[in-house]
Nucleic acid binder design. Structure first.
Lengths: 190, 190
DNA sequence: TGTCTAATTAGATATTAGTATAATTATTAA
DNA sequence: TTAATAATTATACTAATATCTAATTAGACA
C-alpha cells in the first residue's frame, strides 16, 4: 500500500462524523436516511461522508428498491489500519546494491545515444535503473495530467502505457483521478 | 469519551507530511532539523507537526545538548491503530458470541413446535439467529425465482416480504433481476 | 557574562474540508 | 406516464489547518 493511500485512509477516519458512521455500521447495515436521522444530519451530508469512506474502500452497499444499505467492509478496515505499521521498513534494497558502474552500463545498454529507450528491460533491477533515470526530467510536487505524462514518456519509448504503469507499480509516482505526481523519494521501490 | 481520541489520532495521521515523518522515524530517531532537511521543510513546520503527533502520544523524545531526538512510540502506534476495530462492537451483539444454549433458547422462543415463526424479533442478534436457521432449507448455488423464495418464507411467517428483505440486508442472500441466491458464508453478516 | 545552536512561538496567508439548501437523478409504484 | 421516495450533485459558506517569515526561548560552553 502506498503512502498516499495511507494518508487518504487516515484522513477519512479523521472526522468525528465518519467515525460515528463507522461505529453505527459496526452494528449492522443501515441506509442513508437512517444514518442521517441517528446523527441528526442531512442526507447530502451523509452522501458526502459515504463517498469519502467509499473512496478508501471501507463501504459495501446493497440496493433494495430505492433504498441503499451501507455496510462496513471490516476486512478492509483491518488491513488498512495495519498498513502504517510497515511503512518505513525497507527490505532488501535492489537498487541500493547497484554500483555506479553497473548503473552506467545498464543505461548505456538500454538507451541509444539520442536518449531513446531501445526496449523495456524485463529484469526488475534494470527496470528500476531505467525508470529512476527517466523520472529525472520530472519535478517534485508538480501535478501532471495523464496526457502530459504520456507525451513525456513517449519521447523515450512508444509503449508509454507500460512505462506509465511501471512508474505506478514501483511507486515512483502516484496516480489519482487521472493525475500523476512524483512520490517522495523514501517511498520509491529502490 | 474515547471516540474523540480516535478521531484525533486519525486526524494526526491524515496528513502527508506527518506520515512521511513517521516513515522516517520508523527507521530510527532523528532531530528536528534533520527531519526538516529530509522533507525540504522549515523547522517551525516540523515543530508544528511534532506537536500534533505528540498530542496523540506517538512521539518519544530525548535531549542531547541542544538537540532533541524524536523517536516513534511504536507500541502506542500499534495500539492506537487497533482502537477503531472495536468501536461499535456491543458485547453479545453478533452471532459469533451466541452460545449453542442461547441459540437453542432463541429458536424455541420464536418458533412454534410446528416450525412457524411467532414473530420477527426486533433485536438484531435474535433476528440473525432466526434467519440463519430459516435458510438451512435452501441450497448453495441454486437460483431461486422470487415466487419460490416467497412461498418458502411464507411457511414460516405470513410477512414473507420482510423476511425476504432481511435476508438481503444481512447478506445471507443476493438478489438480481428478481432472482435470489444464497451468498457464500463468508459474506453473511454474522 | 555573551555567543552559538536548536527549537519554539507568534502572526499571516492560502488551501482544505464539513455542512447546509436547492435542484437533479434513479428507481419503484400506481 | 405520472407520482413518490431515496440518493446524489451543485454551490455557497464557514471553520480548520499547513506552511511560511520573523522574533523569541532554552541550553551549552568558552
Amino acid at each position: 500500500m502506498q503512502i498516499n493511500r495511507i494518508v487518504e485512509f487516515h484522513k477519512a477516519l479523521g472526522d468525528l462524523t465518519r467515525i460515528r458512521i463507522i461505529a453505527l455500521l459496526q452494528q449492522g447495515p443501515l441506509h442513508g436516511q437512517a444514518i442521517a436521522g441517528k446523527l441528526s444530519l442531512k442526507p447530502p451530508t451523509i452522501t458526502h461522508h459515504m463517498a469519502k469512506l467509499r473512496e478508501v474502500g471501507l463501504i459495501k452497499e446493497r440496493r433494495d428498491k430505492n433504498t441503499i444499505y451501507f455496510s462496513l467492509d471490516t476486512k478492509a478496515l483491518e488491513s488498512s489500519t495495519q498498513a502504517i505499521l510497515f511503512l518505513g521498513k525497507k527490505e532488501g534494497d535492489s537498487e541500493m546494491s547497484v554500483t555506479e558502474a553497473e548503473r552506467a552500463a545498464i543505461l548505456s545498454n538500454f538507451f541509444t545515444p539520442e536518449g531513446k529507450l531501445k526496449n523495456i528491460p524485463a529484469q526488475r533491477k534494470k527496470r528500476l535503473v531505467i525508470l529512476s533515470h527517466i523520472i529525472k526530467g520530472l519535478e517534485f510536487g508538480r501535478i501532471y495530467p495523464e496526457k502530459e505524462i504520456s507525451e513525456y514518456l513517449q519521447q523515450f519509448h512508444p509503449d508509454y502505457a507500460t512505462l506509465r504503469r511501471e512508474l505506478i507499480i514501483t511507486q515512483f509516482m502516484y496516480r489519482k483521478n487521472g493525475e500523476y505526481e512524483l512520490n517522495p523519494r523514501e517511498l520509491w521501490d529502490i
